[in-house]
Design a binder for these strands. Structure first.
Lengths: 115, 115
DNA sequence: TCCATAATTCAACAATCCTTGAAATATTGA
DNA sequence: TCAATATTTCAAGGATTGTTGAATTATGGA
């Protein structure tokens, strides 16, 4: 991920509705969620949620696929992982002080950890 | 770090000049850099750099201290670390797929790693 | 084909953000 | 105090972003 990509990602995540969409889709997993369901849960109008979904898609943080009448959105795990990596390595130059809390989280969730 | 704090941080990092300032200050370390020096290196006008430094300060990502005629800015490592943690744990729900690349970076720079 | 459902697109407007240059503030030294 | 340096503040304008509701597109079933 280059700096331009990171800028777009940060911009996409800097809006409350969009950050909530991403958090929701991450929890939803690969099954994803229909646009209408997202709008309902977040209590946002269909046209507004559509606008924000398009922004997230443009930034590459989510992807979509039609399923019957619905359009299912899901989080792009790879892009989110790359963003974390950019923030730690490229932006924060791998400084231990910055990476320490991240390392703690990584230790809990990494497949090679004790779990 | 709560969601509001994260939103402010993402907003602050979503602008090219500001992202460059942060990257520069992280590399500069605790010694920091004077506003004028930052402006010079990034080829941005003094008033413009001042605007962006204020935005980063408001988001808590950098801090300042006067030294003679200069005002020295430095990266807030703790805030950056918390942002990485938020992105991995709160936003990305600790998903291994997302954390994997981060774990790799963490392994290289963490003080408790093999180094 | 016709209707209902699901979502997007569009235009208009409001709100926010960025840039610019001039003026103001703070510090230092003569 | 005066001048020079370093930076910030301010106001104006332009650019971008977010919101709204109406119109449009796409799908599936009677």
């Amino acid at each position: 991920m280059d700096q331009g990509q990171a800028l777009a990602s940060f911009g996409a995540l800097s809006q409350e509705t969009r950050l909530q969409i991403v958090r929701m889709l991450v929890v939803a997993g690969p099954a994803g969620m229909a646009a209408g369901t997202i709008a309902e849960k977040l209590e946002v109008s269909p046209s507004n949620i559509s606008f924000h979904l398009k922004e997230l898609d443009r930034a590459g943080l989510i992807s979509q696929q039609r399923e019957a009448r619905s359009i299912i959105y899901s989080a792009n795990y790879h892009a989110l992982g790359e963003l974390v990596r950019f923030l730690m390595e490229d932006c924060c130059a791998g400084h231990p002080e910055i990476c320490a809390p991240a390392a703690a989280v990584a230790a809990c969730c990494a497949p090679s950890a004790k779990g």
